[in-house]
């Protein structure tokens, strides 16, 4: 039971980290390796908000939108300055954003104490929720709730707002969307803003569970990407299931073996999964040969 609940919370955190990645990768074909650093920016935002509003009960609810906007702005700047030139070269984008990630990491290391900063947990997250005799820390429950809210808002936004429709139209056929009068540039920028902002929200959640330091983003990027890969491109549903599955699998592997062996096993799991179900993982293009 404990690994299942732990794993669900871990999965929710992964989902938060993967949501934005899935949005930018799935919808724009761009892998942003600095996504983990945007998550880190969100976590540091939570810390900075706490310097202003010292009451942690209040600071975390304030930090969530702040982190969203701050990380989102970083993403926007990245899109406008670099990524917009590289849509034709997805693999190269990956490497460029690796460079961006290195720079952001180092900047964080120099700005903040190298051992990291503490983010106070609000008192209303102190307790436990008893599930079948197991005390489930409220922090974990909160992560799951936060992830659920983000998923709900994101999918509603994509589905019901005109902007969301424009995004989906652009994904479907960029040229046609353009001729239909959609400014794909604006769509790209906004998608990147929202995707990166979601990383910021994930960062706040991460700061409540683990440490907040310059290295934290690097921990999340690969698992988050594996979740996107296993879930299938641009599919919220798949991402949710994959995040939960990977989270629970990691928790169970860690429960049976050690944390590090769990990572290795999770990796093998993804490879095996790719062998079994490659269909959802990449587009098999039957017509064009490019």
């Amino acid at each position: 039971m404990a690994p299942l609940l732990n794993g669900s919370a871990q999965g929710a955190l992964l989902l938060l980290a993967a949501l934005g990645l899935s949005l930018t990768f799935g919808q724009m074909g761009v892998i942003n390796m600095a996504h983990g650093e945007f998550l880190m920016i969100g976590a540091f935002s939570a810390y900075l908000v706490q310097q202003v509003i010292s009451a942690s009960d209040l600071s975390i609810p304030v930090a969530l939108p702040v982190a969203f906007v701050v990380a989102g702005l970083f993403g926007l700047v990245l899109e406008v300055t670099i990524i917009r030139w590289m849509y034709r070269r997805p693999l190269d984008t990956l490497l460029v954003t690796v460079g961006v990630g290195l720079i952001l990491q180092q900047a964080a290391l120099q700005i903040f104490p190298s051992q990291g900063v503490p983010v106070e947990k609000p008192s209303w997250l102190d307790g436990q929720l008893t599930v079948l005799g197991y005390g489930w820390p409220l922090r974990q429950v909160f992560t799951i709730l936060l992830a659920s809210v983000c998923v709900a808002v994101l999918s509603a936004w994509l589905k019901y707002t005109s902007f969301g429709r424009r995004i989906r139209a652009t994904v479907h056929n960029r040229d046609l969307a353009e001729t239909a009068g959609i400014s794909t540039r604006t769509v790209d920028r906004l998608t990147f803003f929202v995707g990166s902002g979601l990383a910021g929200v994930a960062g706040v959640a991460a700061s409540l569970i683990g440490g907040t330091n310059s290295q934290m983003g690097a921990q999340y990027i690969i698992p988050a990407f594996l979740v996107v890969a296993a879930g299938g491109i641009g599919q919220l549903k798949g991402t949710i299931i994959a995040a939960w599955a990977v989270g629970v699998a990691l928790a169970f592997f860690a429960y049976w073996t050690t944390g590090s062996l769990a990572q290795v096993l999770a990796f093998i799991l993804v490879i095996v999964f790719l062998q079994l179900r490659p269909q959802g993982l990449f587009t098999v293009r039957t017509r064009s040969l490019v």
């Binding site: 693999l91 890969a229 944390g259 062996l261 290795v264 790719l274 990449f282």
Partner: peptide, 25 residues
């Protein structure tokens, strides 16, 4: 299985991370 591009890149990197973690521990 025609895994390529970014998928291939990140899977190889994941392997490196996993191996380094395994050795560390």
């Amino acid at each position: 299985r025609r895994v390529k591009g970014a998928y291939f890149a990140i899977l190889t990197q994941a392997l490196a991370v996993a191996l380094a973690t395994l050795i560390s521990s």
